[in-house]
Measured scan of single mutants.
Amino acid sequence: LVRYRTISKIPQITLNFVDLKGDPFLASPTSDREIIAPKIKERTHNVTEKVTQVLSLGADVLPEYKLQAPRIHRWTILHYSPFKAVWDWLILLLVIYTAVFTPYSAAFLLKETEEGPPATECGYACQPLAVVDLIVDIMFIVDILINFRTTYVNANEEVVSHPGRIAVHYFKGWFLIDMVAAIPFDLLIFGSGSEELIGLLKTARLLRLVRVARKLDRYSEYGAAVLFLLMCTFALIAHWLACIWYAIGNMEQPHMDSRIGWLHNLGDQIGKPYNSSGLGGPSIKDKYVTALYFTFSSLTSVGFGNVSPNTNSEKIFSICVMLIGSLMYASIFGNVSAIIQRLYSGTARYHTQMLRVREFIRFHQIPNPLRQRLEEYFQHAWSYTNGIDMNAVLKGFPECLQADICLHLNRSLLQHCKPFRGATKGCLRALAMKFKTTHAPPGDTLVHAGDLLTALYFISRGSIEILRGDVVVAILGKNDIFGEPLNLYARPGKSNGDVRALTYCDLHKIHR
């Protein structure tokens, strides 16, 4: 019993810090008490220290592992850092350059016999395009090294910054494609005289377009951006097909006994025919423009016929181009109408809503002055909100995010209106959640004399007048207030005048 009563005193000691020596009952000389009392004092002292730490809000209350900052290894790049964003855009520009100039170089340097010394005699450094290609190869190699040090988000939505895990993730992902696209074939085969082989191998750079397509997928929600990307894709495919079309004609031209190829026909049409040795002929500019003209006309199913396939190889390629053109029509131009419709969806919704308003007016036989006010209010409210119901949009977000959005939407009023000066951010967040926005066209009466005042109004834009009878008592403008002081009276009061809008007004109100 003594032991039980001794232990039962522990909660009292913990909360009230009572010393055991003052209790005459606990001072009985028993061996059990002498053993338990020192333990009680020690526990009391420890609990006292913990309570003191909690009340003082000291940093040592938290466990040590929670006080440590997340460790980022040296030379690790955050995937959302500004440097990584700028670097990704730079790589994107280099990939676009590669997609345009690599097929052009591979096709127009394929057994090209233009006048001038061969590239091997001039030297590697004197070729501007080769120098640019070398810079692109170096940048792609540097990009691989950067990807080995860039964080990523795993399946659990955690940012991984450990170098080993980053390397394994990159090896399992895009490393092989990036490595093949970054191989400097110019340096590996330079001086061997195989410019045709170098041009063909350099087309491996186009593998990076797969990554670019995935990154550009984030802009699919913007109709104008999608339309622009589709047109660029169409032009890029036409450019690639033009390079292939020229390569076919250029390879067949020296081996044909009869002059029936499209390059021969082009030379005869523009007065620059090929001679018996295969030299001469149109310039590279004429060849490229004509090839691009043929691919565009074939892809769009126009086909004027002034550039036509004559050999079997050219006919087979033309059939493939027609098939590609039909697929592009289905996948690209078939979506253009939907994209344009999405661009004008706001206008369509406006006309639909206006039609419903006019049908309501016609069905209920609203008189002319009231009908005009109804239409003007709808037009003004639509121009202010673009038909978007803010309350319906915010309803799907958590309250903390709703408060931040409301604070942002009402920031101008909260910053410049005098009653809100000096208020804490928590108070402003709470008030912003209570605001209701209303609009009024010129001549609209917001409050009639004798109406119950259940709200306090803040003028965000425009001006109003307060009338008693036919006498203008006051004219209020931006950041002015009218209405009933909230919670100042037990019952809502009545208006002693009319409140009429002089201009288009936007008002925020808080109800009782």
Rank of each mutant, 00 (worst) to 15 (best):
I244T: 01
F101S: 04
A130G: 03
I260K: 05
G267L: 03
R349F: 07
L90T: 07
L109T: 07
T102Y: 08
K66N: 11
M179V: 11
T98C: 07
R356E: 15
P442E: 05
F234N: 01
E359Y: 03
S326W: 07
A107G: 01
S105P: 01
F304C: 10
S192K: 11
A99S: 03
L90N: 01
G281N: 01
E64T: 04
F171L: 13
N391H: 12
L266E: 01
T113W: 11
P419S: 12
H264L: 01
L109E: 01
L355F: 15
P441S: 08
V160A: 03
I177G: 01
S326V: 07
L279P: 04
L370Q: 01
G426D: 04
L110I: 03
H448Y: 14
R74G: 12
I248L: 03
L236I: 05
E114L: 08
S326G: 04
A432M: 10
H408V: 03
E112I: 07
Y80H: 09
Y384T: 06
L414Q: 01
A238L: 01
S298L: 12
E114V: 13
G278K: 05
I146M: 03
G173F: 04
G396M: 10
S192R: 14
I72F: 12
L197N: 03
E314K: 01
F397M: 06
A106F: 04
M322G: 02
E112M: 06
Y329V: 09
I138K: 01
N368H: 14
L413N: 01
R356L: 10
A235G: 11
I135S: 03
R74E: 04
K111T: 05
I388T: 06
A440Y: 05
P82T: 07
Q127A: 02
L266Y: 03
G199S: 13
V210C: 09
Q341P: 04
F363P: 01
V321W: 01
T424F: 02
Y384Q: 13
M179K: 01
L327D: 01
Y344I: 01
R259H: 14
F83Q: 05
Y274W: 04
F378I: 08
R218E: 05
D143N: 03
C417A: 09
Q372N: 06
L327P: 11
